[in-house]
């Protein structure tokens, strides 16, 4: 940040006023959309609204019903499994790919674009494509079986116990490229002298990465973490396109629960209670990050 505001200028007051006015549309929009919408949602989660919002308060009834619902529990479990593996894999694979791209390979920008392509597709398309690739009659399983391994079974989308991993594969395909590019950006920000120094000291490459480079990339890791994590909690369109929550309720996720209760079961109160739980989860992710990055010390 510049030391710009310390410079005394005759028109400081005017300029500050200008900058306040310039920010007003943005702040208003954010206030109306997010704060307004959130307060409204939390407020009605304590009512027994069905098809339309009603102000008949029922205390925590909706929340009790929510946590007694098997579907909600399955949704939460799925989200936990999905989130855990999505984070680990996208970070590990993304970082390895980035470290790899950092070796000055030819046509780097071409690869970068190809790696990013999946991310530029909508979840709907990703879901459809992978629904097909994982279809036991047409996709991977069929191809491998026809190559001779007739006992080969790989049909995650049709097996209740592992369906969420099928969704996970599609999600990783779509998201890893972004993690890779973010990590690559971080790697490029590392001073070349660090590498020279570690070479002079004879530190092996893997060790240099683990002990020197990764700790230096903390800000990149945290930013990526927040982007990936917030995407995980919101996962919705991928599941809808790929499995519609099936087989049975085996691949339900919280966002879909909210949606189905609001629009299909016409039970707004229940949907609001579930979305309030999601908002709380997001806050649990966001607030520590905001505190770590922007609380305490001021960075430029």
């Amino acid at each position: 940040m510049t030391d710009y505001q310390v410079v005394r200028r005759p028109n400081t007051l005017l300029r500050n006023l200008n900058s306040k006015i310039a920010s007003i549309p943005m702040i208003l929009t954010a206030l109306v959309v997010f704060v307004g919408g959130t307060v409204w949602t939390v407020f009605y989660s304590f009512t027994n609204s069905k098809l339309l919002p009603r102000s008949v308060f029922v205390g925590f009834d909706q929340y009790e019903r929510l946590w007694a619902s098997e579907r909600w529990i399955v949704s939460i479990q799925n989200l936990a499994i999905y989130g855990f593996f999505a984070l680990i894999f996208s970070f590990v694979v993304g970082f390895v790919l980035a470290a790899f791209m950092d070796q000055k390979i030819r046509f780097e920008s071409v690869f970068r674009t190809i790696f990013l392509y999946p991310f530029a597709l909508s979840f709907i398309v990703t879901g459809l494509v992978w629904q097909w690739l994982l279809n036991p009659d047409f996709g991977v399983q069929h191809v491998v079986r026809s190559l001779g391994w007739t006992g080969f079974t790989f049909d995650p989308l049709y097996t209740q116990s592992i369906v969420i991993y099928g969704v996970l594969i599609a999600a990783l395909w779509q998201g890893t490229g972004l993690v890779m590019v973010l990590m690559l950006a971080g790697l490029r920000g590392i001073d070349e002298d660090i590498w020279k120094a570690s070479r002079v000291d004879g530190i092996p490459m893997v060790k240099t990465y683990l002990l020197i480079i990764i700790p230096m990339m903390r800000p990149v890791f945290i930013t990526t973490l927040v982007i990936v994590a917030s995407g995980i909690v919101k996962v919705y369109d991928l599941v809808v396109a790929q499995t519609s929550g099936g087989p049975g309720i085996a691949s339900e996720v919280p966002a879909k629960y909210v949606y189905d209760y609001m629009f299909q079961a016409q039970n707004l109160g229940q949907g609001f209670a579930a979305s309030t739980m999601m908002l709380i989860t997001i806050s649990i992710i966001i607030i520590p990050w905001a505190y770590l990055e922007f609380g305490g010390k001021k960075r430029g």
Partner: peptide
Amino acid sequence: STKMMPAVAVLVP
């Protein structure tokens, strides 16, 4: 941080 919010939570309003 508002961008991280699940859109479904504010869909009904």
